[in-house]
Design a protein around this nucleic acid. Structure first.
Lengths: 258, 258
DNA sequence: CTCACATTCTCATTAAATGAGAAACCACGC
DNA sequence: GCGTGGTTTCTCATTTAATGAGAATGTGAG
C-alpha cells in the first residue's frame, strides 16, 4: 500500500460513529507502530486536516471547514442556483426544504440546502449527505439524464438495485422507464430516502450534460396534488433560470479556471 | 520532501482565488512531471478529496463536504451551543448574526453561524472562516483566557501585532489589558474584522480551559448602548448554558471518544 | 472514423518510508 | 518550584516504495 493511500485510510478512520481517535488506537486500527502513526498524524495536523482536541485526542481539523467554505463560495452550480433556491424556499416555507444535488463520478451528493420559516420536520437533506444512486427523486432525475453508455455500465454493475427499485429488469426496460422520467422533466417520490417524506425533483444540465438536480422535500401530507403540480412548475422555472445563470458564471470564467 | 507533504501541498493549491486545476498546471506549479502528478491526483480522487469537474479540470471533492458534515454533526461544542444560538438569533433578528468560534492550536475559526429573518448586511462570519488572532471581539475574549504561558509565547512571536492592536507593548502591559477583558467576561469592538460591523463576544470554557467564543455581529448602527448591554447579558447567559450542555454531552461521552 | 488529448501503465533507477528505542517535552499534582 | 506519567519527537541502519520518461491505452468531439 502506498503512503498516499495510508494517509487517506487514516482520514477515513474519522467517521460519524467514531469522530475522535488517539494515536495509539489509530496505530492499532491500521496495524502500524505508534512511532509511524505519530509521523502520519503530525503530517495531517500540520496541514490542518486533523487537529488535536486535547489530551491526545484528535478529530478532523480546521482545513476541512476551510476547504468546505471554499467549495461553497466557488462552486459555480451552488452560486448559480442560490437565488432561485431562496425564492423556492419562501414559496414552500414551513412545508418543505429546497436542496441541490450534484453528480460526482458515480455518486450523488447534496451540496446545498435552503429553508425559511420553521421546519418542524427533520431535515435529512444536508450539505455533504451522500444520496443513494437508485432511490429518491433527486437521484432519479439525474440517473434518467445520464448518457446511454453510463446507464448501460451502471445497469451491468447494479442490475439488482435497478430491479429492486422498480426501474426494470432488462436494460431495455430500464431505458424505457428512464426515458419517461427524462421526457416528463421531473420526478416525485414518497419515502424512498426518508420515511414519510416526499421528494419532488427536476434535473439541471449544462450544454446537454446532466450536472445535478434541484429538489423540494417535505412531509408527505404537506403537499396536495395541486401543490405538487405547482411545485413542479416552480422547480422547472428555477432550474431553467439556474442553467441560464450558470452560463453567465462560466462565461465570466475567471472564477473557475483561476 | 515527503510524499505526505506533497499530497497536502497539492490540496493547498486549491484556493478561493484558484479553485480549479488541471493535472499539467498542478505538475508545473509543484515542479514534478505530469506522470507523477497524475499518480497524486488519482490517489486524491480515489479518496474523494478532489474530483474531476469535466474536461481535465479538478476541484476539491465530495469527501470535503462529507467530512465537514461529520464535523458539524459530531462537534460537541457546536451541538452544545445550537439551542442557545438559535435563541440569540431570534433576539437579534434583522440586526445581527450569531456565530461560534473555536480555538484550534494557534488559530481561531468560525465553526457555526446562525441568523434568522432578513439580514440585509453581508455576513462575513461563515463557518470555515479563519479569524485573525489579534483583531475582533471573538478572538479577543479567547486570547484573554489563554494560559499565561501561551500568552507569553504569543507575545514573544507576535509582539508587533499586540502593539498594533493596542494590547500593550511589554508583556506586562498585555497581561494587564487581557486581565481586564477576562474580568469583564465580554468584549465589544467596531470594524476590526469587517468595516462598519460591531462585534460583541463572550468566552466559552470547559473546566477552566478556554474552548472558544460566542458572538453577535451586525452593523454598528444596529445597536444602541442599551442594546449592547442587553446583548452582553444574553450572551453570558447563553455561554453558561452552553457550558452546562457541554458537560452533559461529554458525560454521555460515547459520541466523542467513539 | 479519426484525431487530439487525457489518462494509465511499465520498469529500471533513485530516494524515501520504516520502526525500535532513546530522548525530549509537557501538563499536572504535590 | 520539582518530580512524575504520559505524549510526542528524534535517530539511524534497514527495508520498501516512489519516481519519471516514454509507450500504450482510453475517451470524447467533430
Amino acid at each position: 500500500m502506498s503512503t498516499a493511500d495510508r494517509l487517506l485510510e487514516i482520514l477515513d478512520l474519522f467517521t460519524l460513529e467514531r469522530p475522535g481517535w488517539s494515536v495509539d488506537e489509530a496505530a492499532e486500527a491500521c496495524d502500524v507502530p505508534s512511532s509511524t502513526m505519530y509521523r502520519y498524524f503530525s503530517s495531517l495536523s500540520r496541514s490542518g486536516l486533523i487537529a488535536p482536541m486535547g489530551k491526545g485526542w484528535y478529530s478532523l481539523g480546521p482545513a476541512i471547514m476551510r476547504y468546505d467554505r471554499q467549495l461553497r463560495l466557488t462552486d459555480p452550480l451552488i452560486r448559480a442556483a442560490r437565488r432561485e433556491m431562496n425564492r423556492l424556499a419562501k414559496s414552500v416555507a414551513g412545508r418543505g426544504v429546497v436542496f441541490l444535488c450534484r453528480l460526482l463520478g458515480d455518486q450523488i451528493m447534496c451540496i446545498s440546502q435552503v429553508s425559511t420559516g420553521d421546519t418542524p420536520f427533520t431535515i435529512g437533506y444536508e450539505r455533504g449527505r451522500l444520496m443513494p444512486l437508485f432511490a429518491g427523486s433527486a437521484s432519479r432525475v439525474i440517473l434518467a439524464n445520464l448518457s446511454p453508455a453510463k446507464i448501460a455500465a451502471l445497469h451491468r454493475d447494479h442490475s439488482a438495485a435497478f430491479e429492486e427499485r422498480g426501474l426494470g429488469v432488462t436494460l431495455k426496460d430500464v431505458r424505457e422507464t428512464l426515458k419517461t422520467v427524462r421526457n416528463d422533466g421531473h420526478f416525485v417520490t414518497v419515502g424512498e430516502v426518508d420515511p414519510g417524506m416526499r421528494g419532488i425533483s427536476v434535473p439541471i444540465s449544462l450544454r446537454g450534460k446532466i450536472l445535478g438536480s434541484l429538489s423540494i422535500a417535505g412531509p408527505r401530507q404537506g403537499f396536495t396534488n395541486a401543490q405538487i403540480g405547482q411545485a413542479v412548475a416552480e422547480l422547472k422555472e428555477a432550474s431553467s433560470r439556474t442553467e441560464e445563470e450558470l452560463h453567465h458564471i462560466i462565461a465570466e470564467g475567471a472564477a473557475w479556471r483561476g
